[in-house]
């Protein structure tokens, strides 16, 4: 395992909320990517947490762009670097809204074209930057400002949509497991062609958790099987680290839900529905890993 470098590419400090795990995830993404990196950031929390003009807290070049255009922009950028013979990493760092809802067509296009880039979706399961409106990635039963009674629709399974593009490298990660995240970003950048990493980032104001809890909640998401850490290299799926043990024995889902204020009004029926989806997802992943489907 590669040693995590001490270099920091997020200078003290960004304007991220206290306890922001998106900033934590980005810290490790940039540590893995190194200084020869360009970030493409569509509208999301990361576009507002850079600091105030004429200063920025980011020590790598950042290109801020419209919601729907991030992957298209990265495509052009990656081609331009390639034609100049440069090996600069092009990384899109987009939120869940910019990935599963608004940015999906550009992303699908870039994956289909085989663009050499890394697309990272950091998922706080709502539009955090504009005030926690529901997104396609919000899970069932979660309260947001536009679903005050709890969301009635299910979370869009972006990972299976991406998997349908048959890209060389795809993974899920969590801000609460930075070493695993670091390794996956390293692997993704070493793999030619498009790669995609989906990171779960618990959001203190949005999930209505205290600012010291994001790491605990992130770990709990993995322990209950609500979030599974896996990677798929050229079609071969491996379930990683703590999620291996969870496949055999997992904590009850209630332990994850009860930590968060956004699930306060969740009904028994919705909990059962979440539980069923979760079981189905785990079973499908286990089958795929065993090579049965």
């Amino acid at each position: 395992m590669a040693e995590i470098p001490e270099d920091e590419y997020l200078l003290k400090c960004t304007t991220a909320c206290a306890g922001c795990s998106a900033a934590l995830a980005l810290r490790y993404v940039l540590k893995a990517a190194g200084p020869d990196t360009v970030l493409v950031v569509p509208a999301c929390c990361t576009s507002v947490l850079q600091g105030i003009y004429p200063n920025t807290a980011f020590a790598v070049p950042v290109y801020n762009i419209a919601f729907a255009a991030a992957a298209a922009c990265a495509s052009g950028m990656s081609e331009a670097f390639a034609s100049e013979g440069k090996k600069t990493n092009v990384i899109v760092f987009a939120g869940d809204g910019g990935t599963v809802d608004i940015g999906i067509q550009a992303l699908s296009g870039a994956l289909e074209r085989g663009t050499n880039f890394l697309y990272i979706c950091y998922d706080n399961e709502a539009y955090g930057n504009t005030g926690m409106q529901r997104s396609g990635a919000t899970p069932i039963g979660a309260r947001t400002t536009t679903t005050p009674g709890g969301k009635t629709d299910t979370k869009k399974d972006i990972d299976r949509i991406i998997a349908a593009h048959n890209i060389p490298y795809q993974a899920t990660a969590s801000a609460a497991h930075p070493k695993d995240l670091f390794e996956k970003v390293k692997t993704a950048l070493a793999t030619p062609g498009p790669s995609f990493i989906h990171i779960l980032v618990p959001c203190p104001p949005g999930w209505r958790i205290p600012s010291d809890m994001p790491v605990t909640v992130g770990k709990m998401a993995v322990k209950t099987g609500m979030w599974v850490l896996w990677e798929r290299k050229y079609g071969e799926l491996t379930i990683n680290g703590p999620s291996r043990a969870v496949m055999k024995k997992r904590l009850p889902l209630k332990e994850y839900l009860s930590l968060q204020g956004r699930f306060k009004g969740i009904t028994e029926k919705q909990v059962n529905e979440l539980e069923q989806q979760l079981g189905k997802n785990l079973a499908m992943l286990a089958k795929e890993e065993a090579g049965e489907c």
Partner: peptide, 10 residues
């Protein structure tokens, strides 16, 4: 209009 990296940007 381009921002430059600096400690204490926020």
């Amino acid at each position: 209009a381009m921002s430059r990296p600096r400690k204490g940007a926020a």
